[in-house]
Design a protein around this nucleic acid. Structure first.
Lengths: 224, 224
DNA sequence: AAGTGGTCTAGACCACCTT
DNA sequence: AGGTGGTCTAGACCACTTA
C-alpha cells in the first residue's frame, strides 16, 4: 500500500491535494480496504497518502457530507456501515426524488427532447449488444440526466448525483450489472412510451418500478 | 463587527472552534450581513472571528454541504443566492420526502405513538394561546420528529434536518410565523385525524397540503 | 510580472480516555 | 498523570488573475 496519491491524477488536469485524497479515500473505502467501522486516524492517513493534516481533514469533511464516513468531534472519523438497511434507505430516497423529477420533466418536455431521449436509448441498446459496459453506463446516465434537467430543480439533482457514485461503486463491486441489461432496456422503453403519450399515471408507474427493480436487484446481490 | 466568536458559545458545552465559526457564519449569512454573492475571503474571516485558517476552512466546507455557500477550488467561497427559485426547490424536495416519511410512519405507528402525538399537539395549541413562540417551535419540531422517526430512514431524516435550520432562519427573518398559527393547528389536526383513522389517502392529502401551504406562505412573504 | 488569496506543511496545543 | 490523537496557529508555497 505504498502507492502514491497520484494514482488518481487523471489527464493533465490540475487538482487540489484534498480532492485527490478524497478520491483515494473513497476508493479505498468502497474497495473495502478500509472496512466499515474502521477508525480513520489522521496520522495513519498522513503516512499512507504522503500529505499533511489539512488536505486529509478537508477530504474527510467532504466524505462526511456524502454520508460515507462519520466524524465525531474530538474523537475522530470512522467508516460508516454500508449495510442493507442503508442501501435500502438510499434507494427509497432516490426513488421518490427520481419519480418527482420525472413527473416534473413531463410538464416541460418538448418533442425535440423526446427525440434526443430516443436517440440515447438507441445508443444504449447498441452498446448493450456489443457488451460495451462503459458506453452503457454513459448512455444510462445521459438518459436520466437529460430527463431530470428538464425538471429545473438543481437541489434535487444534486442529492441524486451525490449518491450516484456510491451506488455505482456498490453495483460494480457486487458485479451484478450484467444480469439486468434486458430489464433496463424494457423499463426505459416503458418510460419513453409514457412520455411520448404524455401519460402521467403511466409514467409514474414506469419510473417507480424502474427504481424498485434496481433496488431489489442490488439488495439481492448483497445477500451473498 | 469586532464581536468575538463567543457570542454563540451556549451554556457550558465544550465546542470546537470550527463549529462556532460555522454557526457565526450561518448567522451572518442569514442575517444578510454577508449578502448573497459576497466573496468570503479567508483573510477577512480570520480578522473578523479571531481564529486562523483551518477552522474557517472546515466551517466553509460544512456550509457548502448545506448548500449555503459555494466553493470553487483555487478561487474561493461565495454566498449562494437564496432566491425564490432556490426556496421553492428546497420546499419541493422537503414535501416529497416528508410525505414519504409520513406515509411510511403510518405503517408502523402504534396507539401509544398516536397518544403522544395528540399530547404534543395539545401543548402546541396551549403555547399558541400564550403566544410562546419558542415553545411553539419546539412542539412543532417535536410533532414532526416523533412522526418521522417511526419511518426508520435516518438518511431521509438527515436531509430534512439539514435544511431545517436554513428554512427556520428564513421564516424568522421574514417574520411571518405569526400569521399561520391557526392554519398550522388545523393542518396538524387533519394529519392526526388521518393517522387515527389509518387512512392512507387522506393522510397523503393532509401532509401534502401542509407542506404546500408552508411553501406558499414563505414565498409570498419573500415577495416583499 | 507582480499581487492576491487559496492551499499545504510543520509543530504546538489541548480534549478525551486510559491507568 | 500520561498517552493518544484530534484541533489550531503561523508561515511558506503556489495557482490564478490583473496589468
Amino acid at each position: 500500500m505504498k502507492e502514491f496519491i497520484n494514482r488518481v491524477q487523471q489527464d493533465g488536469k490540475v487538482d487540489t491535494t484534498y480532492s485527490k485524497v478524497r478520491e483515494c479515500l473513497r476508493r479505498d473505502i468502497l474497495s473495502n480496504y478500509f472496512a466499515p467501522g474502521t477508525r480513520l486516524k489522521i496520522a495513519e492517513l498522513i503516512k499512507l497518502y504522503n500529505v499533511s493534516q489539512m488536505p486529509i481533514r478537508e477530504a474527510l469533511q467532504q466524505l462526511q457530507g456524502e454520508g460515507l464516513i462519520i466524524i465525531e468531534p474530538h474523537k475522530g472519523a470512522y467508516v460508516r456501515e454500508l449495510d442493507e438497511k442503508f442501501v435500502s434507505n438510499i434507494y427509497d430516497i432516490r426513488r421518490i426524488i427520481e419519480v418527482f423529477l420525472t413527473l416534473e420533466s413531463l410538464k416541460k418536455v418538448t418533442d425535440r427532447d423526446i427525440k434526443k431521449l430516443f436517440q440515447t436509448q438507441k445508443n444504449y441498446e447498441k452498446a448493450s449488444v456489443k457488451r460495451d459496459v462503459e458506453s452503457m453506463l454513459k448512455c444510462n446516465s445521459q438518459f436520466h440526466t437529460t430527463l431530470y434537467q428538464l425538471a429545473d430543480n438543481d437541489e434535487a439533482l444534486h442529492i441524486i448525483e451525490k449518491h450516484s457514485q456510491l451506488i455505482n461503486s456498490l453495483r460494480l463491486s457486487y458485479g451484478f450489472e450484467g444480469n439486468r441489461v434486458e430489464e433496463v432496456i424494457v423499463e426505459h422503453r416503458e418510460i419513453l412510451e409514457a412520455i411520448s403519450l404524455r401519460d402521467e399515471k403511466l409514467l409514474e408507474k414506469a419510473a417507480t418500478s424502474h427504481c424498485l427493480n434496481a433496488k431489489a436487484n442490488l439488495l439481492a446481490a448483497m445477500k451473498n
